[in-house]
Design a binder for these strands. Structure first.
Lengths: 147, 147
DNA sequence: AGATATGTAGCTAGCATAGTTACACACTCA
DNA sequence: TGAGTGTGTAACTATGCTAGCTACATATCT
């Protein structure tokens, strides 16, 4: 487990917002479904709002809303909103530049690592919240996706 | 940074072993190139040996060796040896089964997450230690890889 | 026998995640 | 206008993982 649960929890609450059809949903309700704390949800909603995926309404009858249609929000959008950064860590200390391998290993690997990360992100980009909601409403994952 | 530095450091030391052409290399020498502690290297070598990628010789003139040719060790082999497990974390607490979304969200997402992880692993599988050594000896990443 | 090098255990510091409480601020409705 | 509701954010805590470090038993070679 390397990618934090923020991602799946964010997909979870965004799916709930997609299902609510424009009615604001409170962080307390979202927390009840995701089995966590309302403050955790609000922290996630803060990140999602900063990324332009959600908006919020204060006061009575308020709550969170999708900022655009579920079919226009990809899982990559969600991933980038809450789990930023490079996927592969480098050496903590810079390798020894006096060694030919130490001097060049990072530069030699960067291309491959970026390519691998892009491959993962490409899969996430191919799937929208609307797809996820369809699968959830179908009761799980009977909905097959193309290989 | 979600995938630990164990991976890049392991690639680093395996590349050194590939370069040494069958002469054992001590953990102290490897630690000097990777700018870390010999005990950390030995811990990694333990995992790599368990995965069948390296062997060790004790005593004077001893050290670590590749267990098979560099061209037959992929980066995926290395990744699996030192950084096991699922890439995506799930909810810490199980979602609320009384909510239709909570009840189905994990099952609905598993397929997509596994597919994304496989896409990343596929890129790592396409590259061997021999490729990495070539790039390193070429002085960095002038060696282009196909898109 | 003595020197060398691994394998492993145990401890520490640092960092990220996520849970929790608390409170100021904004908005709605009566 | 004032009460009630819900967000946004800060602060603190517990937990777990990573990685650095020391120490030592064990195996091998000369």
């Amino acid at each position: 487990m390397a990618i934090s649960s923020r991602f799946i929890v964010s997909v979870h609450i965004l799916t709930l917002l997609a299902q609510s059809q424009g009615k604001p949903v409170t962080s307390e309700w979202l927390a009840g479904s995701a089995s966590t704390n309302p403050a955790v949800i609000r922290k996630l909603l803060g990140m999602l709002a900063k990324a332009g995926l959600t908006t919020s309404q204060l006061g009575v009858g308020g709550g969170a809303l999708l900022a655009r249609p579920a079919s226009e929000i990809t899982l990559l959008d969600v991933y980038r909103a809450v789990d930023e950064g490079e996927l592969f860590a480098m050496h903590h200390e810079s390798p020894n530049p006096a060694c030919p391998v130490g001097r060049n290993i990072q530069a030699a690997m960067i291309g491959t690592l970026e390519q691998a990360q892009r491959a993962l992100e490409g899969e996430l980009a191919a799937r929208t919240l609307a797809d996820v909601l369809d699968d959830v409403l179908a009761g799980g994952h009977p909905q097959l996706q193309e290989a």
